[in-house]
Design a protein around this nucleic acid. Structure first.
Lengths: 213, 213
DNA sequence: CTTGGCTTGTGAATACTTTCACAAGCCAGA
DNA sequence: TCTGGCTTGTGAAAGTATTCACAAGCCAAG
C-alpha cells in the first residue's frame, strides 16, 4: 500500500498543513494548488504532485476541500493525535523549549524532563517536573514517551541518545550542535542553529565576492 | 571564478569544518575522506566531490591536511571573521539564544537585541542591552549588524523581516514558525522546530503502518 | 629504483526532484 | 444542454545530487 514519501515532500506537507489550518479557522472551504503554493513558497505543480502521492482529493475546476485535505495530511503525517515528548537538558534552551506553547498547540506535549544538575532535579518548570537523567528508562516507560528532544551540551548528546534509544524512545530531535548517528533504527533529526548561520554566512560572502548581483 | 556551491554541499562543508576543528585541537595533521565521511555522516566519494569543487588540496595516498583544509573551508564559508548579529524578540527563546555561547565560539557575536515590551527595553541580558524595535534602523546601522535572528511570535515575524531588510540587514535567520519570503534579495532561512517534530511523527507513523521493518 | 598499499580526483552512471505542458474533468451561466 | 473558463492529475522532460569505479599519484620500505 503506502508509498514512500520523500523527506522534502514531508516538509512541504507540514507547511501545507499549517496553511490549511489557518484557512480552516478563517472559514475558507476551498483552496487551489496555486494559492497553497504561494503561501508555502512552492509552485502549483509541486503542490499537485505532492498531493497526488496519496491518491488525491482535489476537484478539477475548483481546488481542494480545506477540511478534507487537512484531515488527510494529518493522517499521513500522524498528526491526528498528541505525541508524548521528553526533554533532556533543562539549561537555557531546554527551559525555553519547555515553555514553547506552539509545540503543544501542534500536537506535541512535553510530559517529562531530565537533567543531571542536582539543583534542577525535582523542580517543576512550566508544569513539568525535572527527573534525574539516571531514571530515564523508568520515566520514559511510565509516561509513555515517544519522542525525545536533546538540549544538552554537545559533548553529552551522543551518550544521551544511546540512553534514550535503550529506554525505548522512538525518535530523537537533537538540538545540540553534534552529529548523532541513528542508533537501532531510532531516527534522529538535528536542528543546528549555527549551521544555518554558517549557510547565511556563505551566501553573504559569495555574493560579496561575485560583486553583489 | 567562483563556482556556485549548492545548499546541501554548504551544509556538509559546515559539518566537515566542525570535525576538522576538533581534529586540529587534538593535533591530528592528516585526515582521509573516509574518516571525515564517517564523522559527518556522508560517504567518502561525497566528501571528495564536495572538496573538489574548489580546486582541491588533498594528497593522494595520504589524505587532506587538517590545517590547510580548515582554512580553505573557513574562507569559502566566510567564517574567518566574526559576524555581527542582532536578535529580535527577547522572549523565552530569544533570551536563551542571547546566552548561547556556541554562537560566539563559532564566529557569531550578538551585538544588539530588540523587543517591543516596555519592561524589557533598556534591560541588559547576557551583556546585550535591549533596544526598542522602533530603533532598528539606527541601531543596525550604528552597530554594523549583518545578520538578524527573528525570535518573535509568528504573527509579527513577517513585518519584522521587512523592517530588518529596510534597515540594511544582509540575511535573516527566522525562528518563528512562519514562512518569510525573501525580501529585496535578503536571504532568509527558517528553523522550525515543530516542522522537524512533524517529520519524526511521519517516520514513526509510516513505520508503524508498514509493520515496523 | 621499484614495488605495493593506500587515497585522491573525476567522468560516467544512477537515482532523485522539480518543472512543463496538456488532456480530463468540473461548474456556472446562458 | 451546451459553452467557456478554470483547475486538477500526470506522463515526459529537464535539472540536481549522489554513487560508482578506476586511473593517477603519493609515500614508505626494501
Amino acid at each position: 500500500m503506502s508509498v514512500r514519501i520523500s523527506d522534502s515532500t514531508v516538509r512541504r506537507l507540514s507547511l501545507y498543513l499549517r496553511m490549511l489550518r489557518g484557512l480552516r479557522v478563517r472559514g475558507v472551504e476551498l483552496v487551489s494548488s496555486s494559492e497553497l503554493a504561494d503561501r508555502a513558497g512552492a509552485t502549483s505543480a509541486q503542490v499537485r504532485k505532492d498531493l497526488s502521492l496519496f491518491g488525491s482529493c482535489g476537484k478539477r475546476g475548483r481546488g481542494y476541500e480545506v477540511d478534507a485535505l487537512t484531515g488527510t495530511i494529518e493522517e499521513i503525517l500522524g498528526l491526528s493525535r498528541v505525541w508524548r515528548v521528553a526533554l533532556v537538558g533543562v539549561g537555557k534552551i531546554g527551559t525555553a523549549l519547555l515553555g514553547y506553547e506552539d509545540m503543544l498547540d501542534r500536537g506535541f506535549r512535553v510530559v517529562a524532563a531530565f537533567d543531571i544538575a542536582p539543583d534542577k532535579i525535582g523542580r517543576e518548570i512550566f508544569g513539568v517536573t525535572v527527573s534525574p537523567l539516571s531514571e530515564v528508562e523508568s520515566v520514559v516507560c511510565e509516561k509513555g514517551v515517544e519522542i525525545a528532544i536533546i538540549a544538552t551540551p554537545p559533548a553529552t548528546a551522543p551518550e544521551v541518545a544511546v540512553m534514550l534509544s535503550e529506554a525505548g524512545v522512538g525518535a530523537i530531535l537533537n538540538f545540540a550542535p553534534t552529529r548523532i548517528s541513528e542508533i537501532d533504527y531510532v531516527p534522529v533529526r538535528t536542528v543546528d542553529l549555527v549551521l544555518e548561520l554558517e549557510g547565511l554566512s556563505y551566501l553573504l560572502t559569495s555574493r560579496r565576492r561575485n560583486g553583489d548581483d
